[in-house]
Design a protein around this nucleic acid. Structure first.
Lengths: 241, 241
DNA sequence: CAGTCGTAGTCTGTATACAGAAGAGTGTGC
DNA sequence: GCACACTCTTCTGTATACAGACTACGACTG
């Protein structure tokens, strides 16, 4: 059963999902033995999964100590987005550039733009209650966009670094669901990014991506600071940093 | 003997040194059992070290297969420097900015500038043979500069990503020792970066860093393409990518 | 009653054992 | 002589065992 890497991968995916979805609260202990028993694996795959998650920033890991689900801090969120704003606009621009040289790389983005337009139309026809129900559909599109950028990214270092940051972003999204209004503006931002990329306009893609990240960060901060009483001690929203 | 993390760290440092210095050739197999016997450790710490090195790009690791010392390719070097040119100029600029707000962060850079000037003077007084002997001294200064930037970098994501790339850069330096002429221009480039940072001139720091990286890449490419017969099969200089 | 020492429980780091799988090398058939 | 197949060695993935260290709780003492 060796070369399959089944257990280790399974434990990793399971833990990642539990942490991203906040089923495991920030600060919760991640005991290797305990997790192993719960997930039906021995310590070895659990150890490996914890190390991988620590690399992605989903786990706070200090060598001798018990690993914990990574805390969420306002400073950490700002740093994350500052870093993303350095990487992702560049990646979007490079995809746009590559697209104008080779049309084939644009195929996924044309398709996504189409999906987005279809979704937009149906979304606007719903009342607010039904709109909330279609959140997941929208997230799927945005997630597909991010993955498409990563896949189309020529520079493997850039692609890997952006990918490693995805899971943290996903968790933050679970932490603060934004309202329909933010969703509509986000939709518009994605349309702008997609149009820029499909038109091969690197500069516009870069600017659109930067703008989208800035808006997302702002919405996130608004949401976190207004909810800090709700989450309070649970989420360990330490403002340090 | 638990909370010390001695073995794992020791194996990591040892392997890192061996790979950086090219004592272990690119493509060489890294068998867990064999390394464990050689380094007097069991497979567990060796496994962990190999994973860490894979993250830093010093080891090519595919789940089921034997890990190998990372190959060196011209495309890989270009991608590495393209990525570094995205990160490090930004870091240098942010340090310059932080320095103009708080003088204390500039202390290491003032000291490095002083060390650089002293070295420069003594270096120019030597003949070429003696100059080669002082390479290490210069490398120490440049390495200290890079570490100082990392340490002063406010954004932990940026700092960590830059740090993770250091070991690859160090290995490339070992692969292609540049001549005294390149060293003098590199020295000049470092002087420019240090002056910009200590003057709190973010824009100049960014430009100087970008220029330094571009020059370093060019020197590296020149060196690699002229030496490819020398290294040839040994170094697996696959041009793919 | 408070503070301190001791002990038990739990956790990580490391070593070792076992099973499945891949690759190399050899031998045979064409 | 070459190609294919089989076996055998070796390697990784996983499980488990052991040792040192830290924590927390409780009892004892001042």
């Amino acid at each position: 059963m060796a070369r399959a890497t089944g257990k280790s991968e399974a434990v990793y995916e399971r833990l990642k999902g539990d942490i991203e979805s906040l089923r495991m609260r920030p600060g919760a202990k991640l005991s290797e033995v305990q997790l192993g028993e719960e997930l039906g694996a021995s310590r070895t795959p659990v150890r490996e999964a914890i190390r991988r998650l620590a690399r992605e920033g989903l786990v706070d890991f200090v060598p001798g100590e018990v690993a914990r689900v990574a805390a969420i801090s306002l400073g950490g969120v700002r740093a994350l987005f500052e870093f993303r704003m350095l990487l992702e606009p560049r990646a979007a621009a490079s995809v746009a550039t590559a697209g104008s040289a080779d049309e084939r790389v644009l195929a996924p983005f044309h398709e996504l733009l189409e999906r987005l337009e279809v979704f937009d139309e149906s979304f606007r026809a719903l009342d607010s209650a039904a709109q909330v129900g279609s959140y997941q559909q929208f997230y799927d599109i945005t997630e597909a966009f991010d993955q498409a950028v990563i896949a189309a990214c020529r520079n493997p270092y850039l692609a890997r670094t952006i990918r490693d940051l995805r899971s943290q972003t996903v968790r933050l999204r679970h932490l603060s669901h934004s309202g329909p209004r933010r969703m509509l503006t986000s939709l518009e931002e994605h349309r702008a990014m997609l149009k820029a990329v499909t038109h091969g306009d690197a500069q516009a893609a870069e600017a659109a991506c930067r703008h989208h990240l800035a808006q997302t960060l702002q919405a996130l901060i608004d949401s976190l600071t207004s909810q800090d009483l709700t989450f309070g001690t649970d989420v360990s929203l330490d403002v340090a940093g």
